[in-house]
């Protein structure tokens, strides 16, 4: 990779790392439970993007980009498989992230119902007010 490409890729990686930091700040420091849920979804999505970035590969040549891990023919010859192996990105992180996103949505729905129940019982979602209720 050339200097310019390396710089651009580093901008991408460090933006994701700073996103992790900002969303962690949101989870810890914001008082409302809803804001904590929003920050938590951003945190998990950022972790997923970083996991996908681990599976990315450098461009095989300057003209040829890496391709998704999907064969475009249902009867591949040996040369098809060789060129597929030389250009396709790593499919394993994608398979892991795929289930992680759907499970993340289900867990978030569970948290949403918990927050709703907290609001029904205490009439607030502010953690500082909830902690003072039992004084």
């Amino acid at each position: 990779m050339s200097e310019v490409d390396t710089f651009m890729f580093n901008v991408f990686i460090f933006s994701m790392i700073l996103n992790t930091a900002i969303s962690l700040y949101g989870i810890f420091a914001r008082p409302t439970l809803i804001k904590k849920i929003i920050a938590l979804t951003i945190f998990s999505d950022t972790a997923n993007v970083l996991a996908i970035a681990v599976g990315y590969r450098a461009w095989p040549t300057v003209e040829r980009s890496p391709i998704p891990p999907v064969l475009t023919t249902s009867e591949p010859t040996a040369s098809d498989l060789t060129s597929f192996l030389q250009t396709a990105v790593d499919p394993l992180p994608q398979a892991l992230v795929l289930t992680a996103i759907v499970i993340g949505l289900a867990v978030t729905l569970f948290l949403v119902f918990l927050t709703l129940q907290v609001y029904r019982l205490y009439r607030t979602t502010d953690v500082r007010k909830i902690s003072r209720l039992r004084g």
Binding site: M1, F9, A53, G55, Y56, R57, A58, P60, P69, F84, L85, A88, V89, D90, P91, L92
Partner: peptide, 13 residues
């Protein structure tokens, strides 16, 4: 990013 894929990934592919 590596110029190739890891051994396990190349087996899957």
């Amino acid at each position: 990013p590596l110029s190739g894929v890891r051994w396990l990934a190349s087996w899957y592919l």
